[in-house]
Amino acid sequence: MDWGAIFGNAAVELISPTTAAYALAALGLAVHFGYTGLLNFGQAGFMALGAYGYAISILTFGFPVWGAFLVGVGASVVFALILGIPTLRLRADYLAIVTIAAAEIVRLLFTTNTFASVTGSANGLSGYKNEFAALNPLADGTYGFGPFTNNAYDTWLRIVAWSIVIIAALLVWQIMRSPWGRVIKGIREDEDAVRALGKNVYAYKMQSLIFGGVLGTIAGMIFALPRAVVPSNYQTTLTFFIYAILLLGGAATVLGPIIGSMIFWVLLSFFSGFIARAVEAGWLPFMTGIQGGQLSFILVGAAIMAIVIFRPQGIFGNKKELAFVR
């Protein structure tokens, strides 16, 4: 049993760009669900728009990095408006139904063969990384220490990804302690009361949907940079992983989604590394390697269930808030 490799691989996930992407997407969901009370089950759709918006802009239209970034953000603003205009006047559950369906529509549109020349259909897109790599100010070589040793590109990607996460976290923190955030939290409690105090609830909900959606979209771009853009990555399960991270860390918190994402990925990597090696070593004779891969998700699920049962406010949530929840 190579414990060093298991822990090393788990530690790598602590600052991997994927962890940053999930953290940022969960932060967007914290704005939606934790602070505003909007049940957005389509965060995967926002991420897909970011990833495809970025990749298509570069591959098909030859845009620079900042142009591709703006295309992705613009696409998600339009997506949020399309989702929000018909549903935000209705009860919260309608938004849940519409977002889950809309995210699937987005994914299937990217999967269909009709647009294969642009979207690459089920095979997805790759080869859009050179533009981002060209911006790298770091010289060639390796950076970091121990399990966190990376080449220049991967280090550059981590720096950018986590810088974005930190900036986004500061933005969310600042905006939620402002009068704007107060209105948003009031809407989560009772929109009619806020309406009776002269606040345009519909506009606030729309702003929140766009803000959280844009965070999800940027997360989609970060998610796409270390890998290829493949439509099957943006299934509903992605949204549920992000919800799991959010509840793990604490729904109406800023640090919760970030630390939650780190814990989620370190645990997932640890369990899958451990089980794969345990199967190899013959500790689990009833199991194949593929089954082992599934088992790691089961164990992560059980770990998250335990946290939600024994610490329902999440790691950073305020216990006092829950005392009044029926």
Binding site: G186, E189, D192, A193, L197, K199, F324
Partner: peptide, 15 residues
């Protein structure tokens, strides 16, 4: 319709 999970002061400031 007091906004339960906001403090009394935040309730007031919202007005």
């Amino acid at each position: 319709k007091a906004l339960g999970l906001l403090t009394v002061m935040d309730n007031m400031l919202l007005g």
